[in-house]
Design a binder for these strands. Structure first.
Lengths: 202, 202, 202, 202
DNA sequence: TATGAATGAGATTTCATTCAT
DNA sequence: GATGAATGAAATCTCATTCAT
């Protein structure tokens, strides 16, 4: 409201700088000075725009969650059939599109670990997970229903798929050399497909 | 005359204290003082037995990897058939047995994030991942072969399954409230089972 | 709007405080807290202006070397004849003028010992020695030439004179009670004088 | 007296280890563990044979001073004439013989710096300097007298020569690359020779 | 808004010395 | 004599946060 015009831009700039710095150094070693340097700002200014370093992290978690939500909305707009939407979703998350921003992926992994100990981060992380779970469940239920299958296992299947996604991020960030390239999206799609095919009819 | 060395037990004690402390506070906030207090030792003694805090972490990574390897060996001894061995493996990793040590799981998640930025941790983490991948691939290949299926996709399937496991640990540690309980092991088993069933014959 | 930088004066202040503290306690016992106290600053601030304690030492070495260089320039400006310049130089270094800052002399002695083990200090120390050697050689060559003597031994003579100077500093700092007072400058001048007189003509 | 047979040998072993370690790391960084390792002993044993680390240093200073004294006695035994004895002394101190143990030279330089701040070391250092001064003065007086010269300046000349020696050690240890090789002994001898030659007759 | 110096709490690490065995 | 673990004090360094300008 009373913020000067460039405030929002500054905040975004700082949040992005935290993302970049965290992907490289982790959260604790992403010092205010390093973040400021990356953002091409001065340390003092970061505390003008954010109350604390933890606040920047929180803003980042929310920004990443919002970006995911955004991708969902873009996806939901298309009036594709259920199977195509599910396929598109998996590709968006695990395909080359996601791999195109390894920094965000690494930052997300670091955030996941911070969620283990920081209650506020955990809350934001859980909220993002809940949102994603709801979306996934919806996509899977629709796909199951379209095949005339029971939807009772949609929840558990969504959880397994989400875990696979999070684990893929983890492994891509921490052990890229050990994983076969490009395996994730097609294999996930096929696992889901065959699971659905084998489900009993409704 | 001379004093009896007790380094090995002290080191184990310290490593265990790091595990406990890390599970609760993360790596950076697991200070030497906290670790020492948990181990009921003085801070100086930690640096007598380990060169640095990073060294304790490295020892922990190796200990956890060795423990996993140990579970594999125990498993391999049993002369179960391929399917039973695969099922037992998944249960051991994702079932209640694994859940019985949530501390180790949380520590592993934190280690995964540290691997993003610490080269030496990354190397040890990757080694553990490689070992696990090799084991998983062997189990899956055997199961596929036993069904008379092609084994070409064993590698990608192993990667997907490993990702699902790592992601399950992550979600169990950081967003336990959001996940359906006990979903992981049976759902993973079923996904793999149906995938294998749908593979073409060799 | 923005704050005016004062780093240069702070750095000089800190370097001077290290000099004072080192002259009294040596390098290792010149702790950050002691230096800060002497400079009337907080310990943290020292690390804001210098990366490490070793960096302060390096700055001190360079400052002392620069001060010596400065004295040379002031000396060179005077258009005295060769003999007078040489005499003035020896007096400036070994006479009461130099003795007027026993702190700097003691600090220089301590630096010489640190140069034995710290490569970066050694490099800076060597550079100072090289500069001094070049100057001395020039002064001696001019004096020899003015007398019509060969200048082949100017280098070795310069080395001997420099050694005498360094040793005088050492003895003045570590064993002042054992040395005859005020012997250094006149005796050095006379030794050089008689050496030159006895050199063969060019 | 009541010490066990190997005590003296152990002490010598430890003192030598301090010398070696100090030459490389300086006094403060020559830790008990490093010294013990160099002596192939255990840390605890060092404090059995010496009350404190400072005590080992003191023993080292005395050992080095005694070794110099020893060289004097060996020298004095020879019934050379005054000039030859002086020449032999300078060679023994500054010639290749001395350069053959650069470790002892470096240790002596470090001791000189420690003498700036440690009273007990200073006392021992001064005693060594006094002894050396007395010897030098005697040699110079004898040489002057043998030439029929006045001996009034023997003290100041001895001081200058001692300073040159100490400075040579300093420069050889801290700036070896900057000094002409082998300059020290012949140049010192020549400086003294020409000084004496130019002295007035008694 | 913006700067950058300044603070102070706290972290890791070092190490002489002690001491039970 | 000998060992090596243990202690505790102290050192360097880090860094989020504050604040005068």
């Amino acid at each position: 409201m009373s913020r000067k015009p460039n405030s929002e831009q500054r905040r975004a700039q700082i949040v992005q700088a935290l993302l970049d710095t965290m992907a490289e150094h982790g959260y604790e070693k992403a010092t205010i000075v390093l973040i400021a340097r990356r953002a091409d700002l001065t340390p003092g200014l970061l505390h003008y725009h954010f109350h604390s370093k933890a606040d920047i992290l929180l803003a980042l978690v929310k920004a990443l969650a919002a970006a995911a939500q955004q991708r969902y909305l873009a996806l939901a707009q298309n009036t594709l059939d259920a199977d195509q939407r599910l396929k598109a979703y998996i590709d968006a998350r695990l395909g080359l599109g996601e791999g195109a921003d390894p920094g965000a992926v690494a930052a997300w992994v670091v955030i996941g670990a911070e969620a283990v100990r920081q209650p506020e981060v955990r809350a934001a992380y859980q909220h993002a997970v809940d949102t994603e779970m709801a979306l996934l469940r919806e996509l899977l239920s629709a796909s199951l229903a379209a095949q005339g299958k029971i939807t009772a296992n949609a929840h558990a299947l969504a959880a397994a798929l989400l875990a696979m996604m999070e684990g893929t991020f983890q492994l891509a960030s921490a052990a890229p050399a050990s994983m076969p390239m490009g395996y994730a999206a097609p294999m996930a799609a096929q696992l889901v497909r065959r699971f659905i095919d084998a489900e009993p009819p409704a």
